[in-house]
Write a protein that binds this DNA or RNA. Structure first.
Lengths: 231, 231
DNA sequence: TGTCCATCTCTTGTATACAGAGATGGGGGC
DNA sequence: GCCCCCATCTCTGTATACAAGAGATGGACA
């Protein structure tokens, strides 16, 4: 495999090997190269990154605490499989958290931030019209991050990021839903409008609705796929 | 010091040394034996618990990800000192999260859970009247945990627990505020009433108010103490 | 006397070695 | 033929040894 860690382009000023490994594995999970349920063997990871098990263990521990990996003492670590009911609970929280971000954002975003959000939104419109799914997905993420940052509340952002990271491997599926991209854009539209108008409660409601709709699509998706545990 | 880990009474079925150390340090921080800003030296901790540095490092990493400890590569770990503005932000989130818990709890608590909550509340009343501050503080924690559990949403509970843990070392101060215990009880009263009545919005509002008041007391406390960083 | 640089020490980061808990597979008993 | 038990083996948890960076300290020079 030879994934020499040098590949990591993040500013690794002072970063340790463990951090680099964590980022690499995180990315693997995020992009679906490591599916939920996959076992993380310390020895083979050590070989893959050409380092010892010690930093690998540290990286895994960090992932465990981020919720991306599950670990039982003496039984190793696996990429966290998400039980359906738990996933629904997470979306439930996510909708409230993102709603909260939007509410704060409506009150606190500077004029510059608002304009940047508007530009992002316009960009996503272009991607939607061009039917560029991957690009839309990427901008969509930036959009949500912009709103989260607009809350000007760091702990809240951390919570939102954490939930987003844990749901990301699944979130992607929904874009296959008929008309989802278009609907998603329309929902974003409501959010942007409310935030630009500085209307906290409208922003809250719009964002909450946007995320809640995703729950419905998921449960639908899962009920078609069957099975209560998504791998 | 000789803190032989055996002291930990938690069901350590399968728990590792690292877990035990984490719990011990967590408790130290929680109870104020380790003040924010204190340096966590791996070697001395290893000696204190009579184990090697490896599990100590793992424990510290876990604490870092819980937010209780801060760590910079090659510069060691310190018990996280909280900047004032960040603490206020955390309380801001906490009030929403706990409000959310209360809202869900009002809808979802079983009759047994409601009665248990009522009993807890009655116990705290006794402690208030007997002026037993420490006991009141302990029951207060249980009260909040009961409401969180009543939300029947595990990710939400985790978030709430995380915030609570990070704020706990500071939360304690407020009980010195004149009449705080009595007021706190009255606020709890509103929460209990709303939950028992199954009124989600009232429960949300009452809990949110309860936690918000704590923010005011904190900012007051801090403005008296001076300094933007509380050690 | 103050400042800057080199060295030294102390602490953290990483590697490796060892020990023990679970998993696994084969053999024996029913 | 099937199931249970035990030996073995693999992988995790812990200990210890080594490397390397950051800060401290002391001396030399301005």
């Amino acid at each position: 495999m030879s994934d020499r860690i040098a590949a990591s382009k993040t500013a690794d000023k002072g970063a340790t090997r463990a951090d680099e490994v964590r980022l690499a594995i995180e990315e693997d999970i995020f992009l679906g190269r490591l599916r939920p349920g996959t076992r993380l063997d310390e020895e083979s990871l050590a070989q893959r990154f050409s380092i010892s098990r010690t930093p690998i263990r540290e990286a895994i521990l960090q992932l465990v605490h981020a919720g991306l990996v599950e670990k039982q003492p003496r039984q190793g670590a696996v990429v966290a499989p998400l039980k359906l009911h738990r996933m629904v609970q997470m979306f439930e929280v996510m909708s409230e958290i993102e709603g909260l971000c939007a509410r704060f954002a409506a009150r606190r975003m500077s004029e510059e931030e608002k304009q940047a959000l508007k530009r992002l939104h316009d960009t996503s419109k272009a991607h939607m019209e061009a039917r560029e799914l991957d690009a839309y997905y990427a901008v969509n993420r930036s959009f949500h991050e912009a709103v989260q940052a607009g809350s000007h509340n760091e702990p809240l952002q951390e919570i939102a990021r954490g939930l987003f990271a844990r749901l990301a491997p699944y979130r992607r599926y929904q874009l296959n839903h008929p008309n989802r991209v278009h609907d998603s854009f329309t929902e974003h539209d409501d959010v942007v409008e409310a935030i630009l108008a500085g209307d906290p409660e409208a922003a809250y409601a719009a964002m909450r609705r946007h995320v809640t709709i995703q729950i419905d699509i998921f449960t639908e998706f899962v009920s078609i796929m069957g099975g209560s545990e998504i791998q």
